[in-house]
Design a protein around this nucleic acid. Structure first.
Lengths: 220, 220
DNA sequence: TGTAATGTTTACCAATCGGTCAAATTCTCG
DNA sequence: CGAGAATTTGACCGATTGGTAAACATTACA
């Protein structure tokens, strides 16, 4: 019946959102982000979310009627902001600077919103049952558009010829790796890298990698 | 009581494995790989595995006493082979060729063993509760060793100076992306890329990326 | 202040969860 | 074949699952 992710409380007659509604829904979504991003949709229980959110299960279900509704609300919200950096990709800008800042922005998101990244990763890993249409529609359209920009740069000789789609995949995977595989990254780097310094190192490394590669040889 | 992942059937008095044991355990592990890699540990039910394996739940539990035992057996097996390509990294070899074939090997694994890759990704996403020690011990040791090799190459001027750890992360993430994020990759590329051609494109792209970067500018 | 709408809790439900058990069946090997 | 081991099954268990019903408490607002 309901189509929206965020569902009005059952008893609600009005369409306006109360202060309490605002607060509680925020609590729930934050708690759900914690749990969903770690255990995936099926591995998450409503009781778990309710406990993290600090409320009883029926109370939680007063705001979101089903587990799916919570999940969809989260996914919608994340999808909306997740592609902003790519949207910011400017065809008129300087290629080097555009790529550099795209990498930096994606890396900042991995650092500042790791739960969102993992939620997305979990969804894709499970075969994207809830967002297949989003991927094939809006996402593909956006990537197609930006791929054309990159291709133009390459044709103009501003960057080396390359497959723009796989280039985008490479930027996505390398940056999101620091959110999704954080545990592994920490384990390998050891605790000397306890702080956030690894993100600066990663930024330097990725900028060099994408702009210069390993410089083993040159075509020209 | 039991420490091993693969548990001998309860009634077994002998230590030898029967032909049936061999077959059934293989069926179970393959089915479990399907389900675990898609839904993670907590999202997977024994009934599900049993159904995919084509046997009853009690029958399955005759071969593996608990859900955890199945999962551990799988993880152990995957961990063992997953790092083989990195182990093959040869300090004496030609840097360009070593990196090239490492990328190719990892990409082949993403193509041929996507379930294994996703199982691993799921485990890491969930905070690596079952393999933290493996990561901090054997994995870190191996990476430390190979990082030193890369550093030596850089010092000898054979490749550009770079952070070897983040270089390895980059290779891992870009290659595994084609297994873990397969749905997204397919969605973005469209069905024209229905076959396995995307792996060849990816190989070409990644070789160029890592060896030449985008060649926007040169240090020298 | 009163009252209707909003919010919360306790008790509960059917279905599914991981796992057990004993009986029934099939296999192996002398 | 026959006997003992190995395998398979159905019936079952307590705990947990997603979700509901209704009584109760609180809030907003006329």
């Amino acid at each position: 019946m309901e189509e929206t992710g965020i569902v009005a409380p059952r008893a609600a007659r009005t369409l306006r959102r109360t202060r309490i509604q605002e607060e509680k829904e925020e609590q729930i979504l934050s708690a759900a982000l914690d749990v969903f991003s770690q255990h995936g949709f099926r591995g998450t229980t409503i009781d778990q979310i309710a406990e993290v959110a600090g409320m009883s299960k029926p109370n939680l279900l007063y705001y979101f009627r089903t587990k799916e509704a919570i999940h969809r609300a989260l996914i919608d919200r994340v999808l909306q902001t997740w592609l902003d950096p790519l949207r910011a990709f400017d065809a008129e800008g300087d290629p080097e600077q555009e790529i550099r800042s795209y990498i930096r922005r994606k890396l900042e998101m991995a650092r500042d919103f790791p739960r969102e990244s993992r939620l997305f990763a979990n969804e894709i890993l499970q075969g994207a049952p809830h967002i297949e249409d989003e991927l094939k529609g809006p996402l593909k359209a956006l990537v197609d558009e930006k791929a054309e920009v990159i291709r133009t740069w390459a044709r103009a000789g501003k960057i080396a010829k390359c497959d723009p789609y796989h280039l985008i995949f490479s930027i996505w995977s390398t940056t999101q790796h620091y959110a999704d595989f954080d545990v592994q990254v920490r384990a390998v780097l050891g605790q000397d890298q306890a702080g956030e310094g690894r993100f600066d190192d990663a930024a330097r490394h990725l900028e060099q990698l994408f702009l210069n590669g390993l410089a083993v040889k040159r075509k020209a």
